[in-house]
Simulated assay, not measured.
Amino acid sequence: MLCEHLQAIEQAILQQGVCELSRGQAWSLVREWVYFDCYIDVDAVRRTWPLDACVVNHVHQGTHDGQEQGLACSQCGDGIMGTIEPRAGKPIFTG
Rank of each mutant, 00 (worst) to 15 (best):
A53P: 03
D37N: 13
V45S: 06
Y39N: 03
F36E: 03
A12D: 14
H58C: 02
E32D: 08
G17I: 10
V30D: 01
L21T: 03
S22H: 08
Q7M: 15
Q67A: 12
V42P: 00
L2W: 13
G82E: 01
E20G: 02
N57E: 07
S74F: 01
V56T: 06
I84Q: 04
K90L: 15
H5G: 11
D78H: 15
I13S: 11
L6D: 13
A72D: 01
C54M: 08
D65S: 10
Y39S: 02
E10T: 04
G89H: 09
G82V: 02
A12E: 14
K90C: 11
V45R: 05
E10M: 12
G24T: 04
Q75M: 09
D65Y: 13
P91F: 09
R31Q: 07
V55H: 07
P91V: 07
I13T: 09
A53N: 06
E10V: 09
R47C: 03
G24A: 07
R87F: 13
G95Y: 01
A53M: 06
R23M: 04
T48Q: 08
V59K: 08
W49S: 07
C38G: 05
G70F: 01
V59P: 00
H60N: 06
E20D: 00
S28P: 02
Q61G: 06
A88H: 14
I13V: 15
I80R: 03
G95H: 03
I92D: 02
M1V: 15
P91I: 07
V56Y: 00
T63L: 14
F36R: 06
P91M: 08
D43K: 11
D52A: 14
C54R: 08
Q75I: 00
Q67K: 15
P50F: 00
G89V: 09
S22L: 12
R31L: 01
G17T: 10
A88G: 12
L71Y: 02
R47F: 00
V56N: 04
G62P: 05
D78L: 04
I80M: 03
G77K: 04
P91H: 09
L71D: 03
C3F: 14
V55Y: 06
L71H: 03
A53S: 13
Q16A: 12
R46Y: 01
E32L: 09
E68W: 09
S28N: 09
L2Y: 12
D43P: 00
W33P: 00
M1R: 15
L71W: 04
L29N: 11
Q7P: 05
L21A: 01
T63D: 08
I40G: 02
I84D: 10
L14Q: 13
E10S: 14
L51E: 05
V42G: 00
R23K: 11
L14H: 04
V59R: 11
R87T: 10
H64R: 11
Y35P: 00
G77M: 05
I92W: 05
R23A: 05
M1W: 13
S28F: 13
V45I: 10
